[in-house]
C-alpha cells in the first residue's frame, strides 16, 4: 500500500483564460501552456463550485471551496480571491474533460452571468438533465486600475445530453471544501454587551465670549 503523503506528480488537465492577454490555453502534452483559439465546449454548471482561490507563480494553486453555492467559506488569507471551479468538456479543443478555474474578476463576472442564463434556460422542460454548450464569442476590454483586462463573451448556444466522458460529479476534492466550524445554525449565539458609552463633550465653565 502506498503512503498518502507527498505530491502525486499528477497534474489535472485544464483550460484557462488569461484575462490580461485575452487568450485561451490548455495544458500541452509536454507540460506547460499551449494556446488555443476561442473554444466552444460543454460546461458543467450544474456542479460548479465557488470559493477562495490563490494562484502564485511557480506554485500549485490553493483553494478553499465554499460548502455550498449559498454559503461562502471565510476568507483564508488576504491574497485569496473569490473564484470558481468547474468541469469543461471538448474533445476538439481540450482533448476531453478538463478543469476550468479562475479568480479573475472579469472572467468570474462573465461566468456569473452565464450561470444566471443557465438557471433560467435550465428550468425549461426541454433542457432538463442536459448540459449547456458554451461558446466564447469574443471579448470586451475592461479598463481598471490594473490597466486593460478582457472579459470573455460566453454564450449558451445549445443544450445536449451529458456525454459519458463527463461525469456528473463535483469538480473539486472533498478535502478542498471548507469544513471549519459547524454551520452558524447549530452554534448557540453569545450575548453581546452594549457598546461603551461615548464620553460626553466637555462643557465649558464659562462662555468664551
Amino acid at each position: 500500500m502506498g503512503l498518502n503523503i507527498g505530491g502525486s506528480g499528477i497534474i489535472k488537465p485544464y483550460v484557462k483564460y488569461n484575462a490580461k492577454a485575452d487568450k485561451w490555453f490548455v495544458r500541452s502534452p509536454e507540460g506547460g501552456d499551449q494556446e488555443i483559439v476561442r473554444p466552444t465546449f460543454l460546461l458543467d454548471l450544474k456542479n460548479i463550485r465557488t470559493g477562495w482561490l490563490r494562484f502564485r507563480e511557480g506554485q500549485a494553486p490553493e483553494r478553499v471551496i465554499d460548502p455550498s453555492l449559498d454559503r461562502a467559506a471565510p476568507s483564508p488569507a488576504e491574497d485569496f480571491k473569490r473564484g470558481f471551479v468547474v468541469t469543461a468538456f471538448s474533445p476538439k479543443f481540450f482533448g476531453g474533460a478538463v478543469e476550468f478555474s479562475s479568480a479573475s474578476i472579469h472572467l468570474s463576472n462573465a461566468v456569473r452571468e452565464l450561470y444566471a442564463a443557465f438557471e433560467e434556460q435550465g428550468a425549461k422542460a426541454e433542457n432538463r438533465g442536459k448540459v449547456p454548450v458554451v461558446a466564447c464569442a469574443g471579448s470586451e476590454p475592461m479598463k481598471d486600475k490594473y490597466g486593460t483586462n478582457y472579459r470573455p463573451r460566453l454564450e449558451i448556444v445549445k443544450w445536449v445530453d451529458r456525454p459519458g466522458e463527463m461525469a456528473d460529479e463535483s469538480p473539486v476534492e472533498a478535502a478542498d471544501v471548507w469544513k471549519g466550524g459547524a454551520p452558524a445554525a447549530s452554534k448557540p449565539a453569545q450575548h453581546v454587551a452594549p457598546p461603551p458609552a461615548k464620553p460626553a463633550a466637555e462643557t465649558l465653565a464659562e462662555p468664551l465670549f
Binding site: 449565539a189 453569545q190 450575548h191 453581546v192
Partner: peptide, 10 residues
Amino acid sequence: VTVYEMSGDD
C-alpha cells in the same frame, strides 16, 4: 434580554 450580533459570514 439577550442580544446577538450577525457576523460578516452570516
